[in-house]
């Protein structure tokens, strides 16, 4: 599974569009991902149709030179009833995909783009687990407080740090209600070429923006063995994620803050 994923990686959407041979190759790789990642492991999820370069995921890729669209709002739905206790596949997938591989003696100083949180209900002792990451708020406090505008929200709702202007003041980390952000505490050399990250800058989940722009799903969604995560366009009523949010009760974490998050949970 990871092999077919890596094969597809170096391709940019632009080239996929202009070069028919490559396009066909990506389609094949994409179907491979679909086959292994979804049809086999999570038969309940079938949000894709086969045929286009991006058909495996149902994610519309943009033409080269085309900016992210305001019409789209990317989101995630996590069904925590399916999230297996002790499983950290999403965490491993994320940190492999994004090259978060450095070792630190103090885990509190290490970058954690996504983490598994174990909840125990104080009333009845019921235990649940869920993955926690940047919630990609529509009204992100990190973007409000950033002095240089490095903390930003892309048109399609993905909250990112522009490390070219991040000065490492950590005000966003003070402002984030989800503890989603990490400061890179040491010099790095092992970055993934598609995921630049470095010392002294703040970082967090990018929703695998480099994959989304290629028509792929975020690594955590793709690698979840339980199929507990659904990725898609919250603005498109016909998307799988929108249909599920419409049909079931979902929760926005810290909904009291009215941040209108892009990551929803089902079953809290």
């Amino acid at each position: 599974m990871s092999d077919s994923k890596h094969n597809a990686q170096p391709e940019l959407p632009g080239k996929a569009q202009t070069n028919p041979a490559r396009r066909a190759f990506i389609a094949a790789a994409g179907v491979g991902v679909a086959g292994l990642g979804f049809t086999a492991i999570a038969p309940g999820l079938h949000l894709m149709a086969v045929g286009e370069a991006n058909a495996a995921t149902g994610i519309a890729t943009r033409k080269p030179g085309e900016a992210a669209s305001r019409a789209v709002r990317w989101g995630l739905l996590v069904d925590i009833n399916k999230c297996a206790p002790g499983c950290t596949k999403c965490v491993e997938a994320c940190h492999t995909e994004n090259g978060v591989t450095e070792k630190l003696a103090d885990p509190r100083q290490a970058s954690q783009w996504i983490r598994k949180v174990e909840l125990t209900d104080r009333r009845n002792g019921k235990k649940t687990e869920l993955p926690m990451m940047c919630q990609h708020c529509a009204n992100p406090p990190c973007v409000d407080v950033c002095p240089t505008g490095a903390s930003m929200k892309r048109a399609d709702g993905i909250v990112l740090v522009d490390r070219h202007s991040c000065i490492g003041c950590r005000y966003c980390m003070m402002a984030c209600p989800y503890k989603a952000r990490s400061l890179v505490h040491l010099p790095l050399t092992e970055q993934n070429p598609l995921v630049p990250r470095g010392q002294g800058c703040v970082e967090s989940c990018t929703l695998c923006v480099h994959r989304i722009d290629r028509g792929q799903q975020p690594a955590c969604v793709e690698q979840c063995p339980e199929g507990a995560m659904t990725f898609g366009d919250l603005n498109d009523p016909s998307s799988e994620i929108s249909k599920r949010i419409a049909a079931t009760h979902t929760t926005q974490v810290r909904s009291d803050l009215r941040l209108d998050v892009g990551v929803r949970y089902q079953g809290i």
């Binding site: 965490v91 591989t101 450095e102 290490a110 970055q191 070429p193």
Partner: peptide, 18 residues
């Protein structure tokens, strides 16, 4: 300092943080 200077560099899969 942030971008990877090596072509086709592959990061190793490992459990981070610890």
């Amino acid at each position: 300092e942030c971008h990877q200077p090596r072509a086709n560099f592959k990061t190793s899969a490992s459990k981070p943080g610890i």
